[in-house]
């Protein structure tokens, strides 16, 4: 898209939902390349399934898609493979193993084989442990559950699904309204 086209779209104004979609088209090639990338590099199949289950438990499918549909597991694999240092990657993988170990102790099953109630009980324990770290002003950056939540929220809300379908956000708002009324029914912004 050249400048004239961008100006036409932007000038057409203020709010057609089409606006952002047209601009997204700019990057379609990159997105396709991204989707076509080879498989997982940091997580083995077992670990991937566990990450998928855990992230979906944090951000489940509701009236909008959840973490699994948004490909959060794929994002986490990229971060583990190329962003983290080896020691931090290992801390995360050890955290995954610990989840399974604790689940087996409690239920005799791997986390992905446990039923929903058992899963929720273990995750509630992890969440409570993190809350205690915070309450006592201890460091949270090495805590597995904290890292997983950060990765899950980042992966979800920066995905196209999270950005467009969940948050109704726009790359080009077109206008600025600093004190707009929230949508009365959803208590959310966006459209």
């Amino acid at each position: 898209m050249d400048r004239r086209e961008a100006l036409r779209i932007l000038g057409a104004a203020t709010a057609a939902p089409l606006v952002s979609r047209d601009l997204y088209a700019l990057g379609n090639d990159a997105r396709e390349r991204w989707r076509a990338r080879p498989g997982f590099r940091a997580l083995d199949a077992q670990q991937q399934l566990l990450v998928q289950t855990l992230t979906e438990a944090i951000i489940p499918a509701t009236d909008t898609p959840g973490a699994k549909a948004a490909g959060v597991d794929q994002f986490i694999d990229v971060m583990l493979a190329d962003w983290y240092d080896p020691a931090d990657r290992q801390t995360f993988l050890d955290g995954l193993a610990d989840v399974d170990a604790r689940c087996k102790t409690a239920t005799g099953k791997a986390f992905t084989d446990a039923d929903a109630t058992q899963q929720t009980a273990l995750l509630t324990t992890l969440d409570d442990e993190l809350a205690r770290l915070r309450a006592t002003h201890q460091k949270t950056d090495k805590n597995f559950w904290h890292t997983l939540k950060w990765l899950t929220l980042t992966g979800y809300y920066t995905s196209q699904v999270g950005f467009e379908q969940e948050l109704h956000a726009r790359i080009i708002p077109g206008t600025y309204d600093p004190c707009r009324m929230l949508d009365a029914s959803t208590r959310t912004g966006g459209n």
Partner: peptide, 9 residues
Amino acid sequence: EDRYEYGNR
């Protein structure tokens, strides 16, 4: 609490 900021100033 019933208000939000639309757009990125």
